[in-house]
Design a binder for these strands. Sequence first.
DNA 1: AATCGTCGTTCTT
DNA 2: AAGAACGACGATT
Length: 165
Amino acid sequence: MSLVTATIPTPDGAFTATFTAGGLAALDFPAADVSQPKPLAADTPGAQCDWLETTRRALLAVLAGKKPNRLPPLDLTRGTPFQQAVWQAMTAIPAGETRTYGELARAIRRPRAVRAVGRACGANPVPVLVPCHRVLAAGGRLGGFSAGLDWKRRLLAREGVMPRA
DNA sequence: AATCGTCGTTCTT
DNA sequence: AAGAACGACGATT
């Protein structure tokens, strides 16, 4: 499977997007090290050029706390069926709203797999656009975030969500 | 604050 | 191929 990667500059740093033939398969937070922006190769298929632009706009929207007009096609086939179910359920959380890990578990009909849901959230390959930051622990507590809780707080603050201290 | 139930994933035999 | 260990949890004590 041929992969295409490109960096997307934003006010919050340069994200890295990875596309397969199926769509956006990974979105990585800005790396700690200062890496050079990577432009799209000249022979990149037109569809993926379009996806990159759509991804760029959607990413900037969410970072600004707004709801993106449209998302690029997502290639989430890299996960197990359970993970895909969790990721799918997360895409249904609107900007400015949150769900708990327990609510997400109930949504996918595995009400007792709460901890496993947390793990699946951490394995989300397309953070920000698949809004794992909108999943909080019970009682309005923040819970965890693989990219660091500061990112989670920042993304939520942009959407007007203030998790309980 | 400490403990336990729960379950998908990952790490060890 | 099992089995043990480990969580971005939640409820109970």
